[in-house]
Design a protein around this nucleic acid. Structure first.
Lengths: 194, 194, 194, 194
DNA sequence: TATGAATGAGCCTTCATTCAT
DNA sequence: TATGAATGAAGGCTCATTCAT
């Protein structure tokens, strides 16, 4: 399996750095190869195409993030508590790696429609996580029974995403994680049963 | 003044169609010229560069949208009413022109950082509109006094934007405007003073 | 006759200024029209093409220069005297109009082969003048009988031209005319019968 | 080092042929690539830009010419002998490669001012060679002590250049080299101490 | 596995010239 | 005569991918 070999991750991490520092459109394969310390051609022994690097990048990073989030959520009982932890976890992930934050919030969005559809596919597991929180909240009466699941999920993801993008656009110069409780509470108020 | 001449708008509208149908990266100037029914060179009598077409496109469309929204909001008294109308108006605009919806929600985001900064500049007037609604709501006690204005604005814009993007990505096959009241109410619940 | 109308000369003089100030490749017809105070289309009522402007420019300026030189030479008796006066006159003409000097020594040489062939055609009258000086000098024994007329003419023209070009390339910051006697004498030494 | 690889010279020689046959303004990069038997993109592995090809072309050809001339001159004792050999060598070089003659005498002069300044820089080494001949001739009494070095150099270069250009413009249909002794002697007469 | 030299498709912009008024 | 808006052809350069070694 490719992903077990060290160069696979070496190349993905090189891509994160190169894209963050040069921007999506100036992140040539040759630059990524140089940053990874391999030859241009070697890239193609591990990835089908440049696009494949980007999708794999997102899969790897998002995949491990979803796993971590699942574990954290498992320890929480109420849907409200889970939502608050979700927001905090989301902001934490982005704060932990400033290069990755730039790449996911700004640069990867410059990709074409097809690539973004594939990226959205990767996102689905994360959206499912949100859906589960909402469903459990409705079931146990924390959230309004009349809540439109799709819209509520879009409100959660849209709010977190917009907040994160604004933060990256402002050069990450304030503390994003510190905003998590307030963002979480606003969302909770929107869903609350009372 | 160039913007008063018919060809100016002819070219901008052609650009919307061409970008929507071919994608941002395949929207060659020659295609736009053909769609507008003018020669390639004529484009450059009205726009400095291809980028200038895109910025002007956004300015024209967003500008007239902000104006319209301002007028509609002027007739409303409470902040809650204004917020509901804002969401409805936002969704209405996108529903009214399916090409424009694709362009603003998907294609224009593929532009480089520089162009997006200019686009964000145009967006500022819209964000100010949202801020004013929030401020008035806090002042007259409709919204919680403790509301963080920046976060609340990001929640409003993020939610509308995410909802609209999801709708476009699903080929606009359901009724976006019909979702406005529910989206508006969820947001209101999040800000409500009670 | 076109050349009797004021706009004809207006356009030619505008061309000299525009080419000198912007360089051959940035001297667009529209710039020349603006400088001449006429519309772009008007240019084509007086000249067949842009190339025609440049040839006419050279014809007009060179033509009047050859005429003046002929008159001056007519008053001189010996070939040596004539040669000295020719050099002085040549350098005088270039010193008199710094724009024209730039245009003839630098900018017009950037034109393509065909245009330069036409320009050379205009030059022929000037070269004939030189030939006549040489011929009379040989006839009356001032210059060596064995002199190769073609080579001698090339030496005269090549030396004056190279000297003038170097002077223009050095921003005309020294006195070109002051060099005329020395240049003339060197040439005379080369042709002298003794 | 790029200049040690065969394709470097392959491309330069292709450029000489293409420019000579099509003229400076019709010498597209794609034509040069085809003539060199490489892909368009390969050009840019060896040269920064089209302009870089032209400068390199001049540097290579002029550079090797100056070297050869230096060696030939080293074997000559008197300044007069050196000057005669210089003219002969100059005309020989141009006669040896009819394409190169067209390129250096006609086509390259159509380049813009910037490029010509760079070309002039390359020429400086050649002009130094001329200056040294003149200086030595003055020192050992062969040439007049009163000789103006700058003017004398301009006479030498201007005469050779004009003679060569006229020859190229007449389609190289007579023997340029055969003219060298006569040109050389005329110049010598101009500088001679007696 | 690994290399890196070579490939070649693709597009924005300028500007001389025309022609309806 | 005079205008000036409109035309449309033409080319340098980048970079993802391949393949011989």
């Amino acid at each position: 399996m490719k992903r077990d070999k060290p160069k696979y991750h070496q190349i993905i991490n090189a891509a994160v750095v190169v894209i963050a520092e040069n921007g999506y459109h100036h992140a040539q394969v040759s630059k990524i190869a140089k940053q990874a310390g391999v030859a241009d051609g070697t890239i193609y022994l591990y990835f089908k195409s440049k696009e494949d690097i980007l999708i794999s990048l997102f899969e790897e990073k998002m995949g491990s993030f979803v796993e971590k989030t699942q574990k954290i959520l498992a320890g929480k009982k109420t849907a409200s508590e889970k939502l608050l932890v979700l927001v905090e976890s989301h902001f934490n992930m982005l704060s932990a790696d400033r290069h990755l934050a730039v790449v996911t919030q700004l640069e990867l969005r410059q990709s074409n429609k097809e690539l973004r559809l594939k990226i959205n596919n990767v996102l689905k597991n994360y959206l499912k996580l949100i859906d589960e929180i909402l469903r459990s909240g409705i079931e146990n009466g924390e959230f309004r029974a009349s809540l439109n699941l799709l819209l509520a999920r879009q409100m959660i993801f849209g709010t977190m995403d917009e907040t994160a993008t604004t933060w990256v656009m402002n050069d990450q110069k304030y503390d994003l994680t510190a905003m998590a409780p307030e963002v979480g509470n606003m969302l909770l108020n929107g869903f609350s049963a009372h």
